[in-house]
Design a protein around this nucleic acid. Structure first.
Length: 301
DNA sequence: AGCCAGGACACGA
DNA sequence: TCGTGTCATGGC
């Protein structure tokens, strides 16, 4: 997982072109359900619009080229490269996972080019508190509602930044409920209060090892093992995390345990054993593979 | 109408 | 430690 690739960056008519990355699929990465602020622009092709670190990003992939549409200044390019881990050699990761067994080979084939993006811990934490017993489409709606209500407008994009902890802290539980967060509203408010007041330092949690960081996150209301694993994997670089949700539970039971129901704890231990440091990536391919049978219209919008 | 969605939690055995 | 009902909300 070394970050070693040299990227070629060039500008033309205000747009920026990034080349030199290996296995990467923009649409698969943005719409796989790990992040909730990406919108596919147009009904086909590789055009995605999203918000990362308060910036509105309009990205287009043309085979081995990733185009960042204007405004594409140096800092924006750095955000994009960082977020998608474009300097990381991903072909080797996919080859390792595909080599584990035929099932994992099929899973990788179903979502080749899927990257684990580097989300912001605070936004990721709230997003996955919202995710509890919820659908991807509904999570996206709630996150967008929270941003529109307490974030800041971004230029003329019609999109809003995800609210800072201090801004979200000003929202009452009833306010958050109007964003359709449902029974998770209380958890959202408590998390905002604790982070805003410095009682929980997400940077400090990020610096901890996987076990300690997970233990710390689980202290929050609305954060159990699954949500903690998602935050650790998607925003804190803990690639050994293996979030077990209903899809993964079904997939593993059916593909590896002969259909016998297995406890989530057993699945986590099995995954740690089988995948080790690649557990997080393996989980994402399995997740994409398991959801493949569901039509696209159920996953976007 | 009832079940499900990237679950967590309180409760009871 | 393990199973069960419940918690909003929307799509099927």
């Amino acid at each position: 997982m070394g970050e070693s690739r040299k990227l070629a960056v060039s500008w033309r008519d205000g747009a920026c072109s990034i080349r030199g990355f290996d296995s990467f699929d923009l649409h698969t990465t943005c719409q796989c359900g790990q992040a909730f602020r990406w919108v596919r622009a147009g009904n086909a092709g590789q055009l995605e619009e999203g918000v990362v670190q308060g910036r509105f990003l309009r990205l287009e992939q043309r085979d081995a080229e990733l185009v960042v549409h204007p405004p594409a200044d140096d800092e924006t390019i750095a955000v994009v490269v960082d977020y998608f881990r474009l300097r990381q050699s991903h072909t080797a990761v996919e080859a390792s996972i595909a080599g584990i067994d035929p099932t994992m080979a099929a899973a990788v084939d179903s979502a080749r080019g899927l990257r684990l993006v580097a989300q912001e811990p605070w936004e990721c934490l709230i997003s996955y508190i919202v995710s509890a017993n919820n659908s991807v489409a509904q999570i996206s709606r709630v996150v967008e509602n929270l941003s529109r209500a307490w974030g800041k407008p971004i230029g003329s994009s019609s999109r809003y930044s995800f609210p800072a902890p201090g801004d979200l802290e000003r929202a009452s539980q009833a306010d958050v409920l109007t964003c359709k967060a449902g029974f998770r509203s209380r958890s959202i408010c408590e998390a905002a209060r604790r982070v805003a007041r410095g009682e929980l330092d997400l940077n400090a949690v990020t610096a901890m090892d996987y076990r300690a960081a997970k233990q710390e996150l689980i202290r929050l209301r609305g954060v159990g093992e699954k949500v903690a694993d998602c935050v650790l994997l998607f925003s804190m670089g803990k690639f050994e995390a293996f979030p077990v949700d209903v899809w993964i539970e079904r997939a593993v039971r059916h593909l590896y345990f002969g259909g016998e129901k297995t406890s989530q704890r057993d699945i986590r231990e099995w995954a740690e054993d089988k995948f080790g440091d690649l557990a997080g990536y393996a989980q994402e391919y399995l997740f994409a593979y398991a959801r493949l049978a569901i039509p696209d219209r159920l996953r976007s919008g």
